[in-house]
Amino acid sequence: MEINDLYRDVILDHNRQPRNFGPLEPADASVEGFNPMCGDHLTLRLRLNEDTISDIRFEGQGCAISTASASLMTEAVKGKHRDEALKLFDRVHQLLTDDAAPPAEELGKLAALSGVREYPARVKCASLCWHTLASALKSTDPKSVPAVSTE
């Protein structure tokens, strides 16, 4: 495993210039995610049109993996139905943790995250934003979702 397989160009690009980064006002849901082990945190805000994610933005501070993962995630789920986004969450979770995960071509740019699974200490960096999103989407009251922690 080479370090370039973890820090692929897509990851470096989304770290340098994160997409959908910044506040979103007003928002239908606002959820915070923490990684207490490393002190990283992010705030994820989204607008829902019926059951479709019409807009989504994030802010906070984290490493390249966590920033790029959040940036890629916002691009991937914007415009998607809640159920589709949750399916994608399951698929990415599998990609990050399961060595036997099937090829990831259909995931598009998100496939760049597959390098993370060779670095167990960094899986939480990549998955924090996804857990935060899932928590917002699964909540019956998106206005008051408790903060998500990786620990």
Binding site: Y7, M37, C38, G39, D40, G62, C63, I65, R122
Partner: peptide, 27 residues
Amino acid sequence: HPHDLGTILDEDGIAVRTGHHCAMPVM
């Protein structure tokens, strides 16, 4: 970011600590 640095240094066999060092008020 310190965590990215820690992972890259580890590839070189170099072990350093990255994080808040259980001293969040210092951070």
